[in-house]
Design a protein around this nucleic acid. Structure first.
Lengths: 308, 308
DNA sequence: CTGCGCGATTGTTCCAGCCTATGGAATTGG
DNA sequence: CCAATTCCATAGGCTGGAACAATCGCGCAG
């Protein structure tokens, strides 16, 4: 057996297609077919069932593929580790960020990171938490910035900051009169939410008394981005919760939209940098976390990392 | 890079000697030296520092070796997984057992296991918990039977049974009069303990009010095995705690030694079968656990596995 | 100083893995 | 129902790299 063989197996599993997998591996299709066949013979188990046109992993194959992924990831760690030891702070950092943070946080972070980590260019991937976490676990991302607590045993996290929520509403809304808004003041029926899968959606729904399903909330008005949500709010369709950084960036407070801080200790979310346990890039990531904390605007509660 | 290269690295790390490592890998020394050199050049990092006669890992090497071990273990999992899928219940099971359980439990287990798992010969390794756990994590053992709670994130455990403690004392001891002995009745100063590292030592010391250090206990009388401990007790040097299975086996209750059950709910220890999370042998291990529970004599509390 | 232990170097052999070309099975479309 | 297409498997030749044996060179010990 060979690491290359395992790469081939993973490629076939990912593409469900020998030709495309071969393309991705930069080898010819017969080469890849041959190696897979050799490996299957060596293991005495069929990894993929080629029935008709479809290529699917067998039951045994599923397990084998999972172990193969771990082996390949560990081998990649060896390489990353070597590079990190030549210069711990050099080398591309692939960073996932959730959509409700990325556009508002990265403008602060990118210049600071370029200065503090000049040899570690950031490659950003914007997606929802549920998509980012497996990518981090698989080692396809070095880290991710998310706003939920993730407890997969293979992850570690660095706290970045607590981001309070604000309420955004049209200028003629009755709550404009108060300096602060209590969650209970918000009529769930008028609360506008993001589409499913955004953690901000769940957090807003829970805060305003609509745990999980967001039942009672205007289900027919779900925006796919925070920007859309704000446009809907400005157009008078309801009120919405906005995380502080989105308020800070200034595009929110216009003459068509008013924001008020949300009262209460729980009215904020903890933003974290998660990465794999034992990631070879840990040192660079600790430095990145430090840089992020330092580049934050006033108004979000900065946290100390235990290693500082 | 290559899985073989990683094997070579691990062998050199384990032997601290190129020649012996080559021998262990069944290749010539030049081959191994060459591959290590090639890998170091490829990674751009020196893995081993050859200063004078000594071969030691560099700082970077330590990390690389650790990742290499994970990669090789995962690759081995692929092989094990394939075998397990051909016949889940076949293939050698390498089982660690702590010394205060092994000689008393295995006589029950071995015949039963030979019958229920005829194609899975048990290879026993007897050692203290602290030595067994890393072997299990590294994949050098498939599982281990221990009597403490281990919380390494990479381990799973199957509960086997609760083993009550008994008190062993010479026939002329005043406590012989009572049917049961309360932990508080035992004078810590007369309590004989095993040497450091045996979990039974810690458990006995804690039960009888000498947390951890066992302070106040006769420090100059520490036996390296339970058998020795019993001989000391019979010779009138004090009293000692004996786990139930050691009592059951009959060698304890002689005319020179009397045993009484220890009262109280906490006067027992939970015996578990631990194994790596995602071990390819999980199915065989579940069957082994079931077999062990079924082969136990009366008197130890049998537990149900959640999967039964 | 000399012998020995041990890792590095050198040169040759040979096999594993790669490619191109082709075969064959299954699905699709007319 | 047949032809075209798609896709994986097989065949055969070529090449790079891993293996070995032999040797070198260095550092330590007596």
């Amino acid at each position: 057996m060979n690491l290359r063989d395992l790469h081939y197996v993973i490629a076939v599993a990912d593409h469900a297609h020998f030709g495309n997998a071969a393309l991705a591996c930069c080898v010819s299709q017969p080469t890849l077919s041959g190696q897979i066949a050799k490996l299957e013979q060596e293991l005495g188990v069929e990894i993929f069932s080629r029935v008709g046109r479809a290529v699917r992993p067998t039951e045994a194959g599923e397990q084998i593929i999972a172990h193969a992924r771990r082996a390949v990831a560990a081998a990649q760690d060896v390489v990353d580790c070597a590079r990190a030891n030549r210069d711990p702070l050099s080398g591309r950092l692939r960073l996932g960020v959730i959509p409700t943070i990325s556009p508002y946080l990265m403008p602060y972070v990118l210049p600071a990171a370029a200065e503090k980590l000049p040899n570690a260019p950031l490659v950003l991937v914007e997606d929802k938490t549920a998509h980012l976490v497996p990518l981090v676990i698989e080692g396809k991302l070095d880290a991710a910035i998310i706003a939920t607590q993730e407890d997969a045993g293979e992850l570690a996290s660095l706290d970045l900051f607590d981001e309070p929520f604000w309420v955004a509403m049209p200028p003629n809304h009755p709550l404009v009169a108060s300096r602060q808004v209590k969650p209970a003041d918000i009529d769930p029926k008028t609360l506008l939410l993001l589409t499913d899968g955004h953690c901000l959606r769940d957090q807003a729904a829970e805060l305003c008394g609509n745990p999980q399903t967001g039942q009672g909330v205007m289900a027919d008005m779900r925006a796919s981005s925070l920007e859309t949500l704000l446009h809907l709010t400005a157009a008078g369709h309801g009120v919405t919760l906005v995380p502080q950084l989105a308020v800070e960036c200034g595009r929110v407070e216009t003459d068509r939209l008013v924001t008020r801080p949300l009262a209460g200790g729980a009215a904020s979310r903890r933003v974290r940098l998660i990465h794999r346990l034992r990631s070879p890039r840990t040192r660079a990531l600790v430095e990145l976390a430090r840089t992020i904390r330092a580049s934050l605007p006033e108004g979000v509660r900065k946290l100390q990392s235990s290693s500082d």
